[in-house]
Each structure stands twice: as structure tokens, then as C-alpha cells.
């Protein structure tokens, strides 16, 4: 049995999902020969630390009640960076909020973990979109792994698929729907003829869009993902700010209707072809594999050997994202001697 001690930094939606999966898939993981124990959980105002292992069901109960500080291992005012440095663990799961301007607090968390010779698994796009090569180099220098499957298209296998199943393929171009919220809005506009504002309101009511939807509707989230894809899969030194970006706020029902009449749907497409990288609304033929509805994501990779490879799936969600994080954790544990 291979054992690994895991620490979760940022105990929000995804952090909780990871804890849930660690608990619910315990037996299945043990069948795979892996035993994972949760030794620390960090929030903004303190950390829970128990190097013998934190009981997940009690943890989740306290979290639901908003009473993490009642846990016996609660260390008030212990900062995440200090916990990352000091707590004896193998893998740091960094799942704090994305910030594409400064990358913080994730950037400091990830750098500190790598420098402390801890493996890192993250769903946080900011640090990777801003400092991809620096972080990868840091991981190499410290001889630890940095894995980020969950940063792009949540539950869909992308990086691990290319690394394993498509090993030896060269990725020539990438295009896809990388944001579920905007896809939901555009799909509603296409199906029902409503305006952007109405579809956005629906999305908010359903908890699909956030109160401040700029990250999604201005294409910022998709541009961060395009940056990570370009760096990770195509070896490009692409900077986030160099991704040409057009959002979906100006799309009107008349445009959607004209497109529909001619056999197209309008979708927000992230694309890397030649030396161009962009996020912009494009016309997708109705029968095209990228024409997926609802909150689905779809990614089309053009490769030299396998030709076009298409992945369709859920780009976000608590458990879907946790699935990608756990798969990264397993990859790390399995590859250890």
C-alpha cells in the first residue's frame, strides 16, 4: 500500500468536494493500493492540523455548520503559507480563489509548497496563467510534481490524456468551449430567443453564473485556460495578457437568429492556431462536434498522429472538479517509488 498525506488549502466548494471524495472513495482507492490521509485544511482565518489524520465526516459537519474553529485541531490565525511550510505532508491541494491579476494567494501558496519539496495539485488558474514556466521550473528544481488537471475543463481529462494516451503526439491546434456559464447563456439565447441580459439573469438564478459575472462573460476565465493549454500542451511561452479576448455581452438575439437560420450556433471559442491565441464568439455549424449545449464544455485537439481528438464533459462543479484533483493526486502517488 502506498500512503500519502494530503493538505487542502482553501476550504470552499472545491476543497469540500475533495474532502468528500477522499471519504467516499476510500475503499476504491485502497483497492488501487493507495491510502490517502488528510492532515491539514487551511482557511483564511486559521488551519486545522492533525498529522494523524483528520476525520472527514466530522470535518464536513463542522464546515456545513460554519464552525470549523470548533475542531480540536483548529489553529486560529495559523496562516496557510506557514502551514504549507511546517505541516509534514506530501501533497498540497491548492484550491483558493482564482485571481488573474496578481495570482494571489495561490501563487505564494504553490511556490512555497514547491520550495518545501511538496507536490502540488491545483484547480486555481491564476498562478499558472501568470507564471507557468517559473512554477514548472520550480517544481523540476525541487524534484516534485506540479499537476493542474482541474484548472481547465473541470472534470474532463485534458492534460493527463495528452500526457498518457496521446504521448508522442504533437498538438498542432486547440479550440474549444472552455466556460460552462457562457455556454449556458448562449445556448439559452439560441434555444429561446431571449436577450443576453435575460439569459444571464436565469443563469444567476440557477447558480450557474456568479453575482459578478465578468470573469465568465468577458472571456477572462477562458483566456486564462487558453494560456495554460498553450504553455502546457504546445510549449508556447504565451502570456495571459497576449490572448486576444472578446466576450459575449454584446451579442443580440438578432445575431443569434441569423446564425441559426444559416445553420450555425454562436459559441464562445478559445483557440490556439498558428501563432494566434484568442477567445471570441464564433459561428459553429449545428452538426459540428463543438456544438454542445447547456453548461457543457468541449475541447478539440488537432494532433499529428491521432488527428482530431474531442473531449466533451462538465467543465465545473464541486465533485467533477474534485474528480480531476484526485486523479492528479493518484498520478503522483502511483509514480512515487
Amino acid at each position: 500500500m502506498k500512503e500519502a498525506r494530503v493538505m487542502i488549502v482553501g476550504f470552499g466548494v472545491v476543497g469540500e468536494g475533495v474532502a468528500e471524495v477522499l471519504d467516499s472513495k476510500k475503499k476504491q482507492l485502497e483497492k488501487l493500493g493507495v491510502k490517502l490521509s488528510l492532515v491539514a485544511v487551511c482557511e483564511k482565518d486559521g488551519c486545522i492540523v492533525d498529522e494523524k489524520g483528520i476525520g472527514v465526516s466530522e470535518l464536513l459537519k463542522l464546515k456545513k455548520a460554519g464552525e470549523l474553529q470548533k475542531h480540536s485541531g483548529w489553529k486560529k490565525k495559523m496562516r496557510s503559507v506557514d502551514a504549507i511550510r511546517e505541516v509534514d505532508c506530501d501533497i498540497v491541494v491548492e484550491v483558493t480563489p482564482t485571481n488573474v491579476e496578481s495570482g494571489e494567494p495561490g501563487l505564494t501558496h504553490i511556490a512555497t509548497a514547491l520550495d518545501s519539496k511538496k507536490h502540488v495539485v491545483t484547480s486555481n488558474k491564476g498562478p499558472l496563467a501568470l507564471k507557468f514556466s517559473e512554477l514548472v521550473e520550480k517544481a523540476e528544481k525541487n524534484n516534485v510534481e506540479l499537476k493542474y488537471e482541474a484548472t481547465v475543463c473541470g472534470g474532463m481529462p485534458v492534460f493527463n490524456m495528452v500526457e498518457n494516451a496521446l504521448a508522442s503526439n504533437e498538438i498542432k491546434s486547440i479550440k474549444g468551449i472552455l466556460n460552462g456559464t457562457t455556454n449556458f447563456i448562449l445556448s439559452r439565447m439560441h434555444e429561446t430567443g431571449v436577450t443576453f441580459e435575460v439569459a444571464l439573469k436565469e443563469a444567476k438564478e440557477m447558480g450557474i453564473a456568479e453575482e459578478k459575472p465578468d470573469y465568465d462573460v468577458k472571456g477572462i476565465d477562458a483566456a486564462a485556460k487558453i494560456t495554460i493549454l498553450a504553455n502546457a500542451l504546445m510549449g508556447r511561452k504565451l502570456a495571459y495578457k497576449d490572448v486576444k479576448r472578446v466576450g459575449i455581452e454584446e451579442i443580440i438575439p438578432e445575431g443569434i437568429a441569423l446564425a441559426k437560420k444559416s445553420g450555425f450556433a454562436i459559441k464562445l471559442i478559445g483557440e490556439i492556431t498558428g501563432d494566434k491565441a484568442s477567445v471570441s464568439p464564433q459561428l459553429i455549424p449545428l452538426g459540428h462536434p463543438l456544438n454542445v449545449g447547456g453548461t457543457l464544455n468541449a475541447l478539440m485537439l488537432e494532433t499529428d498522429l491521432a488527428k482530431e481528438v474531442i473531449v466533451i464533459g462538465r467543465g465545473a462543479g464541486k465533485i467533477e472538479t474534485a474528480s480531476a484533483i484526485i486523479s492528479d493526486v493518484l498520478e503522483i502517488v502511483k509514480s512515487r517509488k
Binding site: 479550440k175 472578446v246 483557440e271 492556431t273 471570441s280 464568439p281 464564433q282 459561428l283 459553429i284 455549424p285
Partner: peptide, 10 residues
Amino acid sequence: LVVIREVEGS
């Protein structure tokens, strides 16, 4: 204006 062009290679 916003230009929404057909996806390449469709």
C-alpha cells in the same frame, strides 16, 4: 462592431 466568424476548418 463585434465580428463573429465561422470556426476554422468547419
